[in-house]
Amino acid sequence: MTRPPTAAQRRVIDAADPVTGRLRGTESQLTALAKRGLAFRHPRPPHDHFLTPEGHRVRQGITRAPEPTGETPAPTGVFAARVGGEEGATEAGPARRREVHSAWQGLLELRRMTNPDQAVDRPCGWERAHLAQAAALALEASGHRPAGQRGGGYRVRETPQPEAVAVHEVDGEALRACAATLEGAGWQVSEHREPRTGGRYLLASPRRA
């Protein structure tokens, strides 16, 4: 089970700038938050630390104990968008929708703070390093249903192609809707067909300009 932030870490998170998510604290506190995926160090001077999407979620009090699913925990132990096919996934309720909305708003702020031109209409470096989660978050935040919830739904999977994920959907109309959502979120999308099954899927890559 993921440990909640310590009292000292929570005070640093709660004191973050409400708009930018900029953090103030000791170097050890900020480093510890970054290791837990709750903060990131800005690559440009003065190298301030800012809340990640998960950090924004914690700051807003959208927390919950992890549900036992029998799966191996995600490496970061923090919020993860559903890529589809997770065991034990249930229909998204109000708490999950608030969680996803907060993570998406935090990601938009992350784009603004880390893209050189402060653009929020295209993915940032964090998304390029977490392709499947980033694409799945864009889909889930727009109301698409991940596979495993009453059948159907999307599945986002890594591919051998650099900076590209595959998005599968059982329904053609839903696949096109996924493509429109990802394009609106700043991804380049193309549709392809599986050579063996003939099923259609999307290849999505973060747009750079």
Rank of each mutant, 00 (worst) to 15 (best):
V100G: 15
L175G: 03
G153A: 08
P160Q: 08
D171W: 08
A119E: 12
A136W: 06
E91I: 00
A92N: 11
T63L: 13
H130A: 12
A136R: 04
G125S: 05
Q161R: 12
A134K: 11
L137T: 10
H144R: 15
V120H: 02
L110Q: 15
E109Y: 01
V165M: 05
N115M: 10
F79I: 03
D117Y: 03
T69E: 00
T159P: 02
R176A: 05
A92Y: 12
V58K: 06
V78D: 01
V58M: 10
G151C: 01
C178D: 12
R57W: 05
R98K: 12
R111W: 14
G84T: 12
A147G: 11
A65K: 13
Q60D: 09
F50A: 07
R155H: 06
S102Q: 09
G106L: 09
G77P: 15
P160E: 08
E99W: 08
A129M: 08
L131D: 08
T114D: 13
R128H: 09
A177Q: 15
P116W: 03
G151I: 01
L139S: 04
L110N: 05
G153K: 05
G93C: 06
T90E: 15
E183H: 09
P66I: 09
T159K: 05
L108F: 02
P146D: 01
E87D: 07
G77E: 14
E163F: 11
A136E: 09
S102M: 05
L51A: 06
A103S: 14
A92F: 14
G172Q: 11
L175Y: 04
E99L: 07
A129V: 09
V170C: 03
G151F: 04
L131M: 07
R157H: 08
L107F: 13
L51P: 05
E71K: 05
T72C: 00
H47V: 00
R176E: 11
G88A: 12
G151Q: 02
A89G: 14
G143A: 13
S142Q: 12
G153S: 09
A81P: 11
E163G: 01
T72R: 13
A179Q: 05
A138C: 14
R145A: 03
P123Q: 14
L139F: 06
V167H: 04
E99A: 14
V156W: 03
R98V: 00
Q60F: 02
D117H: 02
Y154I: 00
G70F: 06
T114G: 06
S142Y: 05
Y154S: 01
G61T: 11
L131H: 12
A138G: 04
P146M: 01
D171I: 02
V170G: 13
E173W: 02
A119V: 11
T52H: 05
E109G: 12
A89E: 15
L108E: 04
C178M: 06
G184N: 10
A65M: 09
G152F: 02
A177G: 14
A174P: 00
Q149M: 03
I62Y: 12
A138T: 07
P160G: 06
